[in-house]
């Protein structure tokens, strides 16, 4: 049995060392940045799916809203991080609160379909915003300014900022799931009727968790906009929500660092396959099917069985 911190420390350690070990070249660094940003969003989704049992198929919407908040503020000439990031987070949280208020009233498969539908709503809305590029997307002239500086343009700074945020989110997520609140969430996943018989209404707990995951997704979206310096409706396409769900499962659902591992594996795999053949999805798709069918416990499960 591995020590319980061995795997997460290895993952975060590798990410911390990567720029120093020759992965500092432009492309691989931005690849890692993308993986960490997706990992941040996947962490929130992992709390929802693995913790609260809420399988959301619309999580990319929170990314999109966070990213479009950056775009809209940019178009209005506002690029200060002190305004941009809180706005992204808040906007995504409000969207999650409003859509979650409807979605969580239903359960199980209805929840999956409704979150998917709301994600699609965000997608079509973004595509109809012709002032912000419509279908074609919107190119940011510069990254968000941090205290009036262009620090976010510095790849190294950006890399370690992302890593710090990722570690913070991981720690906070762990605390959350272990707390009283998290205990109620986990019980709601295992048996909602039992929870009610104890005197809890699962609804406010689940709604708050959904809102928090949305907020984290909003932050990730704002960071993604900064990483790519470009935002398009394709960020919100429902396939991106499917990708996020896949990352969570690929890494392993039981523990939060599984989401980070899954995001890393996903991004690297996608990159590797895309270099191999333009029809990489023809390999990726069946792989996904196989993971869903046979890789119970995800990559973490594999690692831990070995250990």
């Amino acid at each position: 049995m591995l020590h319980r911190y061995t795997v997460p420390l290895t993952i975060f350690g590798a990410l911390a060392l990567a720029p120093l070990l020759g992965f500092g070249a432009g492309h691989s660094l931005s690849l890692l940045a993308r993986a960490m940003i997706l990992g941040l969003g996947a962490l929130g989704l992992s709390v929802l799916v693995g913790g609260a049992g809420l399988v959301s198929l619309g999580h990319a919407a929170s990314f999109g809203i966070g990213a479009y908040a950056v775009v809209m503020l940019d178009a209005a000439g506002i690029t200060d991080a002190g305004v941009v990031f809180p706005t992204s987070v808040l906007a995504a949280a409000v969207f999650a609160l409003l859509t979650g208020a409807v979605a969580i009233r239903t359960a199980g498969v209805n929840f999956i379909m409704i979150t998917l539908a709301f994600g699609q709503m965000a997608f079509f809305t973004a595509a109809s915003l012709s002032a912000y590029g419509g279908d074609d997307g919107y190119t940011l002239y510069a990254r968000t300014r941090l205290f009036g500086t262009k620090l976010l343009e510095n790849r190294w700074f950006f890399h370690y900022l992302l890593l710090a945020l990722l570690v913070l989110a991981w720690l906070a997520g762990r605390r959350l799931l272990a707390s009283r609140f998290g205990r109620v969430l986990r019980a709601a996943r295992e048996n909602p009727l039992r929870l009610q018989a104890l005197g809890f209404s699962p609804y406010p707990y689940q709604l708050l968790a959904y809102t928090l995951a949305g907020a984290l997704g909003g932050l990730a979206g704002a960071l993604l906009a900064n990483a790519t310096e470009f935002v398009a409706p394709s960020f919100i396409a429902w396939q991106r929500s499917g990708d996020l769900l896949f990352m969570v499962i690929l890494g392993g659902l039981g523990q939060l660092h599984g989401a980070v591992l899954g995001a890393l594996a996903f991004v690297l795999l996608e990159e590797y396959l895309a270099e191999l053949t333009p029809h990489w999805r023809l390999i990726f798709g069946p792989l996904l099917v196989l993971v869903a069918l046979y890789l119970k416990g995800g990559l973490l499960g594999l690692v831990q069985r070995r250990g």
């Binding site: 959350l176 009283r180 205990r183 019980a187 039992r194 104890l198 005197g199």
Partner: peptide, 30 residues
């Protein structure tokens, strides 16, 4: 309808938690 993924103690502790104070506490390990 016990919670199979919870320890025996945690099953009972959740019931106690229902009667003692708010469960909207996010940081301290329950």
């Amino acid at each position: 309808a016990v919670l199979p993924g919870f320890s025996v103690l945690e099953n009972a502790a959740l019931a106690v938690q229902a009667r003692s104070g708010s469960s909207f506490r996010f940081w301290r390990a329950a």
